[in-house]
Design a binder for these strands. Sequence first.
DNA 1: AGCACGCCGACT
DNA 2: GTCGGCGTGCTC
Length: 841
Amino acid sequence: LPPVSPSRLVAVAVPVPALDLLTYRVPDGLEFPPCGARVLVPLGARRLTGIVVGLADAPADARVDLKNLIDILDAEAFLPASVVSLAAWVAEYYACGVGAMPPFAWVESELRARATADGRRQAEATGPGAKRTLRTSLLALLADGGWTPLRSLAYQLEHADGSRRGRGVPVRALVRLLEQQGLVEVEDVLTGRSAAFRTRRVAAITAAGQSALERSVPVDEPGTGRSRALGSKQREALAALTETPAGLDLASLRGRALTADVFQRLSARGLVSIREERQERDPFESDATATMPAETAGHGRHLLTGEQEATLARLGAMAASGTFGTSLVHGVTGSGKTEVYLRLAARVRDSGRSVLVLVPEIGLTPALAGIFRSQFGDRLAIQHSGLSDGERHDQWHRIRRGEVDVVVGTRSAVFAPLASLGLLIVDEEHDGSYKQEEAPRYNGRDVAVLRAQREGALAVLGSATPSLESYHNASRGRYQLLAMEKRVLDRPLADVTVVNMRDEYARSGPDLVLSQALAEAMRARLTRREQVLVLLNRRGYATTVFCRQCTSPIDCPNCSVSLTIHTGARGTHRGRCHYCNYSATIPSTCPRCAAPYMERSGFGTERVEQEVRAACPGARVARLDRDTIRRRGAAGTLLAAFGRGEVDVLVGTQMIAKGHDFPRVTLVGVVSADVGLGLADFRAAERTFQLLTQVVGRAGRGEERGEAIIQTLFPDHYSIQHACRQDYRAFFEEELAFRRAMRYPPLVGLTNGIVRAPSLAAAMHDASAIVQHLQRAPGPAFQVLGPAPAPFVKLRGEHRAQFFVKAANRGVARAAIREALDAHPDLRRRVIIDVDPMSVL
DNA sequence: AGCACGCCGACT
DNA sequence: GTCGGCGTGCTC
C-alpha cells in the first residue's frame, strides 16, 4: 500500500501532450488511489481521465489552487506501476510533457451530446424549408436520438447543409448554451481507445418467446396496447433461436433471409433478449499480417548452426541469471538471428517470465511476427500502427489481463503492460524508425534497454549493421558483444561490383540511369528466371526542374526545397513537395525570366522503373515506395507477390532493403549509392553504409550465389568501400574517428533544438534567447552551438532556426534545457527539443 | 492538445 | 454594430 500522504496530494498524468504531471487533492470521501489507477480530473473547462503516477508535494508555485479529483475509476492499478514510472522517466529524459507518452495518451475521455425531448420537439418544429441558423442545424444534428461526440460536430456541420462552413464554429460554446436551455444533454465518457472493444449483438430467446412460439398466442404490441399474432418472419426467427441455444450473432445474419430488424422487434416485445458481447479481433485477420509467408512454419524445427547454438547458449545463460544485462548480437545478414531470438524467447517464457520483441515496421517485415505466431499461438500479442484502434486495444487489454506471454510490436509496444519481463529483444536495432519523429521524441530501442534495467531483464539488440552507439557501448564493455559471422548453410555473401558513374557518363552521356553492367546483369538474371531488386532511395520521376537560362529551380512556396517531379495520370508530370505535399503543374516557361527552356534533372524511383522496363522488355516490374503503398497493407501485399515470384524486378526505396528473405533474388542493383551522402547530417555516412550493407545482404539467400552492383560517383568513399566488403568493423573504426574529431555522438550526448517562427529573423531571435539562457548555466559542463538557420530553413510556411547542446553528462544538459524552456513559456509551442536525434535536418 | 479570451477586418 | 477568423496564454 502507498504511504498515506499527509496532505493527500497525488501526481497525475493527463493525456495532454504539452503538460507535465499535475497535482490534485484527494477529497475526503475518496480512498487514496494507487499508482497506475485511472482518475477523473478537472482540467480547465474539461474533465479528463488521467493516471496516478505517485504521491505529490505541494506545488512550489503557491499561486496554483489545487483542485480535487472528481472520481477514482480503478481500485487497483490500470497500468502496471513499472510502466507508469518508466513512461514518467522517459518523458523527463526527452524533455517533453508526460501527457504525450503513449501509455498515458491511450487513456482518454470524450464529450458527447444529444438532444433532450424538448430539443427534439424544437428540432421537428423547424421544418426543412425554414431558415437554417447554426443553432438549428446543430440541434437537428443532435436530434437523431444517439450520442454524438462533440469533436465530430464541426465536421458534420460543414457537410450537413452544403453552404455552411463548419470550421471555426464555436461548437462547444453553442452546445453548452443549448444545454443551459435544456435542449441538449452532455455526457463525458471514457472512450474510444480504452473502451474500443468491438461488440457484437447476440440474440437469445426468452422464456416468453419460447411459450409464444409453442402456443402461437397473440402478443402485446409495445406502446399500442394492442395484441397481434406473430408474423411468419418472427416465427422463423424464434425457431432459428431455439436451434442456437448459445445465442445468434446478429452480424451473422447478413446474406440470410432474416434481418436484425426482426430480432429488434421481437426484443421490443420481450420475446428475445439481445446482449452486447465483447468481441476480440484477431490482428492476423487484417491484411497487414495476412500476407505472412507460409514457409515460416519450418522455423523452430531444424538444427541450429554451431554459431547460432553458441549465441543462444550465451544469451540463455544471461537471461537465466535474472539480472539486468544488455547483449549486442552482431550477425551478418542471413546468419539466422531470428531463429536464435525465437528459441531464447521460448526458454524465457518457459521459465515463467514474459518477452517483448520490438521490430521496426511489421508491415514491411511480417515474417518475424509470423514465426513468433506459429511458436506461441494465442499466448502472443501483436502491437503495431497498422492495427485499427480497436484491434490494438483488444491486444493491449489481453496483455494487461495477463493472457499473453510474448508481445511483438513496433516502437510504442515498449510500453506494453507486461508483468515480470525477463527478455526484451530489439531486432534491427540501428533502424531509424525506432525514433519517433514527433513528440514524444523517444527511441524505442533505448527505452527498451532502460526498461530491462529497471525490471532486471535481459536486453538483446540485434543487427547486421549496429548503430555506432550500440557498437561503441559493446566495445567499451557496457554491452556483451556476440558475433555471428557465417550465413546459415554457409551461403557466401554476394559478390559486389562498384560502377564508377563518371566513366559511364563520359561514355554514354549524363542522362544515363542504368549502367551497361547493371542492365546486362539484370537481363542475364531474368533469362535464368531469377529475381532482381533495384534500390534508389529517392522517390519521384525527377529531382528538380530548373530554367536553363536563369538557372533558377522551381521551389516549393512553403518550404526551402525544390519540387520533385512525379508522374501523374496519363503520363503528365507534376511538381510535388515531399515535405508539405504542395503540388503544382510545371510551367513550360520560366516563371522568373519567361524563357521557354525548362529542364528536368536528377531521377527517382519512377524514372528507374521506366528505365528498367525499357532495358528488360517483357519483365514484370513493380515499384515499392511511399507513393505506391498509400493503402494500408499494400506493402505487405506487394512484397508477398514478389516472394511468390509474380514479379521479376522490384524497384524501390529503402523499404525493399529491410529484413526480407527472398531466396530467388540473386541480383541487387543500387542505382545511386550517393543519395544521402551529401546531406549535412552527422549520420549521413552511417546511414549509407547501413543501407548498402542491408540491401546487398538481400542477394543470394537461396542456393544460387548472389551478386550486387553499386553505381556511384564516389567509389572511394569509405561507407561505400566498407559496405562492398561487408566490413562493419572497419567502417565503425573510421566513422568513430570522424565522430570523435567532430564531437558527435556516440562520444557526446547531442540535443537538437529547433525554433519555428513566422520569419527567420524572429526564429533566430527566439532561438538566441534560449541559447543565451543555456550559456548562463554554470561551469563548462556542456557546449552550446548556434543559433543558426536550420538546414530546412523554411518548412510548411514556417521559418526555422536551430541550436545544439553537446554534453558528456546528459543529466546536466537535460536539466539546463528544461530550465531554459521553463524560463520562456511563451516559446514552448514553437520549440522542438530532440534529445539523441536520429537526424538533425 | 483543447479551450477561452481578446483583437481585428468584413459583412448584415 | 456583431460575426467569426486567428494569435496568445493556460491548464494542478
